[in-house]
Design a protein around this nucleic acid. Structure first.
Lengths: 206, 206
DNA sequence: TAATAAATGTACACACTGTTCACATATAAT
DNA sequence: ATTATATGTGAACAGTGTGTACATTTATTA
């Protein structure tokens, strides 16, 4: 049963406005980019007056924080998926997880931007922190069979390197000059090569 | 001879408003963050009316593009510096260049954010593209003695990897959850370790 | 069931933003 | 000296986030 973003006609209350506003951010960010996400536009899309948003979110930044949190969870899910698929098919799990990370950025650039933006979200929000923590856990577990880990609670240089490389490429694709004219397939190809190149650095003896 | 941002009193014309506006962006971004950079605030800081900015920049985005271009050049200069220092002292040049990259992000986070932001700058601006190209050239030349390169005009997987890793760590520091409570020294230490860990992947035979 | 409380949505207002346009003033060219 | 060009101004406009007093619906309780 899929609920509509819009408020039902002739009804005063919306019913699930908090979530619908997130859907509206989703829709607008996807179609017109993150800068086009405006509180009033979201409210209009939900069929509701602008000020009603403040019943559910303290301010715009709180709404964007909630959206970023949702995006983090989506990425986590995609990575978990990629990992289990790789496990079944006997492929390298780190490569699969890393590719899923880059692919998410390519498919949903606005989401990827939204979730790493200190200045537009509350990075000390509890749920956001929890989602970010879960994401890094997924990353770590994705590296698990590639990187020999000592302390699973802190990041080793190898893990930092792996995360940085994948995160950096995703960023260069989304915001930077890398792969400007290339197709998605070509970019993923490049990502695959990069990850393959990275491998020797990850399991070298200390 | 250092020129002031402010317009001289009792003078109608400013004299070097275009540059002063960039200085104003610099100042405000440094002190209050990128989101606080407003056209009106920049104009006020330059001692000039808001609309005067449009004599020099088509719109706010053009101003931010010019600022991003300037930031790119500053980063390029810092990297060139680091490289020649390393060469003199006989240290690893790639490590020095990579560290300079990360250090710039740590010292001037707002600048680092500003220069990679597709949605707030004109990434097809000529000068911006030129500056970005020069930056990547500096990166490549920094890697020169570490990575055996075939075609100096296109990026090899190793070069992409190196750039991604350094860029990714810088981003995770600036926007992400990595190194949240750590001092600058500790972060640079972490960067050094990451780069050292990366080394084996860069000069492995194909 | 009737009365009341709490939650949720609205209308209007406010300060602030980027931007435009007719106008003012200074500098350059003739 | 006159004219053209460059540069800065003031007032206006629509659009933004947000606060506040009010309206309406749902939940709670007597």
């Amino acid at each position: 049963m899929r609920r509509s973003i819009q408020k039902e006609k002739n009804s005063y209350h919306h019913g699930h406005l908090a979530e619908s506003l997130l859907d509206a951010v989703d829709e607008i960010a996807t179609r017109f980019g993150l800068e086009a996400v405006t509180l009033r536009a979201c409210a209009k899309l939900a069929g509701v007056s602008p000020s009603s948003a403040f019943r559910h979110y303290a301010d715009k930044r709180a709404l964007l924080t909630a959206f970023a949190t949702r995006a983090l969870k989506q990425l986590s899910a995609a990575m978990a998926d990629a990992k289990s698929h790789a496990r079944i098919q006997g492929n390298n799990e780190f490569s699969a997880v890393g590719l899923a990370y880059v692919e998410f950025a390519l498919d949903k650039p606005a989401f990827f931007r939204a979730m790493w933006r200190e200045e537009t979200i509350y990075t000390n929000d509890e749920e956001y922190i929890a989602a970010a923590r879960q994401l890094s856990a997924h990353l770590q577990s994705g590296f698990a069979d590639t990187i020999e880990d000592k302390d699973p609670n802190s990041f080793s240089p190898q893990e930092i390197l792996a995360w940085s490389a994948v995160h950096g490429l995703a960023n260069l694709f989304v915001e930077g000059p890398v792969g400007k004219g290339a197709t998605k397939t070509e970019k993923l190809q490049l990502a695959t090569e990069m990850i393959r190149t990275l491998a020797p650095a990850l399991n070298s003896a200390e």
